[in-house]
């Protein structure tokens, strides 16, 4: 209960500030509707099912992109990390594309995957995969040397050391990579939904609301997107606590 008091007070303060800004007419009421109106319109969006559908579509795309990214990034990162020389060779390429704004890749991916679902998921998967790969590789590279030696002296072969030691040593970092990866995938999916011919998804919905001057709904969608990102982050933090019980102890 105590843990929730702080965030609840913070949220309440934010809403009060918003209401105050409305009362003081800081901005045109069309641009800044009162919080109650934003909530009412968001509620209606959920009640008639459209906003729920958009949220679900965004979750689907993000989830799919994340699964693809993990399926590629984790094994590849672990394999590269285990061959440090090889990783040093490709490190520049990984770092380069990791630093490239994913949005700059949209045109390229549009050519490769066409204007449908493929491009949105592929760009998000690409961006997330690089983050996951990078973290997995570093997790393996930074594995405690003593543990590797201990496994070796106990008769573990190379592949056994990978499975019994290196992957476990890298697990905390792999989960950190996955957490960053899914956040990045969400960002890319929402942007893609805005600009790459979409008929649904939170990105599509928020830009539509803006163009139709449904500003109450627009704020609502922004909050839903925010809540989604927050929830995903929280989910991974809980997973880290659960699966990496030894970390930091």
């Amino acid at each position: 209960m105590r843990a929730l008091t702080g965030p609840a007070l913070g949220a309440l303060g934010f809403v009060l500030l918003w209401q105050l800004a409305v009362l003081l007419r800081v901005a045109d009421p069309i641009l800044l509707p009162p919080p109650a109106e934003a909530f009412a319109e968001t509620w209606r969006g959920f009640a008639d099912g459209t906003l729920a559908h958009d949220t679900w579509r965004t979750v689907q795309r993000t989830g799919l992109a994340f699964l693809i990214a993990s399926a590629i990034g984790v094994p590849l990162g672990v394999a590269l990390g285990a061959q440090e020389k090889l990783y040093r060779g490709v490190e520049f390429v990984v770092d380069f594309f990791r630093s490239t704004p994913a949005s700059a890749l949209f045109p390229l991916f549009l050519i490769l995957f066409g204007p449908g679902e493929g491009t949105k998921v592929a760009v998000a998967a690409f961006g997330a995969a690089l983050v996951i790969l990078f973290n997995a590789a570093y997790g393996v590279i930074n594995a405690r040397r003593t543990r590797v030696l201990a496994a070796r002296i106990m008769g573990a072969s190379g592949p056994r050391i990978l499975v019994d030691v290196l992957i476990w040593e890298a697990l905390p970092q792999i989960l950190v990579g996955m957490r960053s990866g899914i956040s990045l995938a969400l960002v890319i999916v929402v942007v893609a939904e805005m600009f790459i011919g979409s008929t649904d998804g939170l990105g599509h919905r928020v830009i539509n609301a803006q163009m139709l001057f449904e500003s109450g709904l627009m704020y609502g969608v922004i909050f839903v997107a925010g809540a989604l990102g927050y929830a995903l982050n929280l989910l991974f933090i809980l997973l880290e606590k659960r699966f990496v019980h030894w970390s930091g102890r």
């Binding site: 405690r144 003593t146 543990r147 201990a150 019994d164 030894w246 102890r249």
Partner: peptide, 10 residues
């Protein structure tokens, strides 16, 4: 090993 923290598998 000297450093049991880094030698055992936690």
């Amino acid at each position: 090993f000297q450093n049991y923290r880094e030698a055992l598998f936690p």
